[in-house]
């Protein structure tokens, strides 16, 4: 793990957001959402910076980040694949899709391919149960997915 010590400069969008939320009660989760929106995950240096700006112990920030599934500590791939593991999708073969993706990409769930192009994640219900099994690539939803469509879906996003 690389250890960078100098403070990072927060993006303008984030700084503005912090300024807006700084004095509102219960702001930590909302600010962490913004961090993840800007960086794709929550980099350690940003968390350290937040701790100073909000005057909240770093331990508390990490306590919150690790409690919630939504917050990520590692950088996701350029394309984030989320395979729905809700009940409807599970019954209709969501797990098979996940295994097939792991085989196709040669990487496991919750990790990123070596070239950094894809990361795979198993997620809770995305609320499209009528279309089960469902997977999402970034924010695009694919419904009623069959295993043999996966290669095409990957190819489409690999190019873009």
């Amino acid at each position: 793990m690389t250890t960078v010590t100098e403070p990072v400069k927060l993006t303008d969008g984030l700084q503005q957001f912090i300024a807006e939320w700084k004095d509102r009660p219960g702001n930590l989760i909302m600010i962490l959402h913004k961090v993840q929106e800007e960086y794709g995950y929550i980099p350690r240096q940003v968390a350290i910076q937040l701790s100073k700006e909000l005057d909240v112990p770093l331990a508390k920030i990490y306590g919150v980040i690790t409690f919630y599934h939504f917050f990520k500590l590692r950088k996701p791939g350029k394309n984030k694949i989320s395979v729905c593991m809700g009940t409807a999708c599970y019954l209709k073969g969501g797990e098979d899709l996940l295994h097939e993706l792991e085989t196709l990409l040669g990487t496991g769930v919750n990790s990123t391919t070596d070239d950094g192009i894809f990361s795979i994640e198993a997620v809770r219900c995305v609320g499209c149960c009528g279309l089960a099994p469902v997977l999402m690539v970034n924010s695009e939803v694919y419904g009623k997915v069959k295993k043999d469509q996966l290669a095409d879906i990957l190819a489409k996003h690999r190019e873009s």
Partner: peptide, 8 residues
């Protein structure tokens, strides 16, 4: 609006 963060 306050956002949840994936905790059942």
């Amino acid at each position: 609006i306050r956002l949840g963060a994936g905790a059942f």
